[in-house]
Amino acid sequence: MRELVETMARALVDYPDSVDVEERQQENTLVLTLSVHESDMGKVIGKQGRIANAIRSVLYASASHQKKRVRLDIVE
C-alpha cells in the first residue's frame, strides 16, 4: 500500500524526493500519512479535493481486494 501511494504522489509533484509515506496500524485499520513539499500540496489535493479523492479511491479498491481497512491522511 505504501508503495502505491508513493508512486501516485511522485508522479504528481514537482519535488518527488520530498514525498514521504508513513505507515502505522491503528486498531484494525492501516493508516497511511502522506507528506509532500509545501508547494506541492495543491497538486496532491487538487481542485475541490478531486485528486486526493482519486488517490483514496484507488487505495480503497486495492485494500478491499486484500480485505483490509485503510485510511489516507495528507499533511504538510
Rank of each mutant, 00 (worst) to 15 (best):
R56K: 11
R24T: 06
D14T: 11
A9S: 00
Q25F: 01
R50H: 10
N53Y: 05
E23M: 11
A63Y: 06
P16F: 09
D14A: 10
E22S: 15
L12W: 05
A11P: 00
K43R: 15
R56Y: 00
R2I: 13
V21K: 09
S39P: 00
E27L: 11
T33I: 12
S64N: 15
P16V: 11
A52L: 10
R69F: 07
Y60L: 10
M8R: 00
R10D: 03
M41L: 15
V13E: 01
S35H: 03
Q26S: 13
H65E: 13
A54F: 03
I51E: 04
D14M: 06
L30D: 07
L12Q: 08
S35Y: 02
E6H: 09
K67L: 08
I55M: 15
H65D: 05
I55Q: 01
A54L: 07
Y15I: 01
D17S: 10
D14F: 01
K43F: 09
E76N: 11
K68P: 00
Y15K: 15
S62T: 09
I45A: 10
K68A: 08
R71W: 00
L32D: 09
G46K: 02
I45M: 09
K47L: 08
V44L: 13
I55L: 12
T7A: 14
E23Q: 15
T7L: 13
G42N: 08
Q25V: 11
D20E: 14
A61L: 04
V31N: 10
E23K: 13
V36A: 02
V36F: 00
M1G: 14
K43M: 14
R24D: 02
K67I: 00
V44S: 11
A9T: 08
D14V: 05
R50E: 12
I45K: 09
Y15H: 15
A11N: 13
K68W: 03
K67E: 11
I45R: 10
L30Q: 11
A9I: 04
S64I: 04
E38D: 12
R56G: 06
A63Q: 06
Y15F: 12
D14Y: 04
Q26H: 13
M41I: 15
G49K: 05
V44T: 10
R24A: 06
Q48P: 00
E76M: 05
L34E: 01
I55F: 06
V36Q: 03
R56L: 02
V21W: 09
R56V: 04
V70Y: 01
D14K: 13
P16R: 11
G42L: 12
Q66I: 00
V70P: 05
I45N: 03
H37D: 15
R69Y: 13
V44M: 10
V36W: 03
R2Y: 03
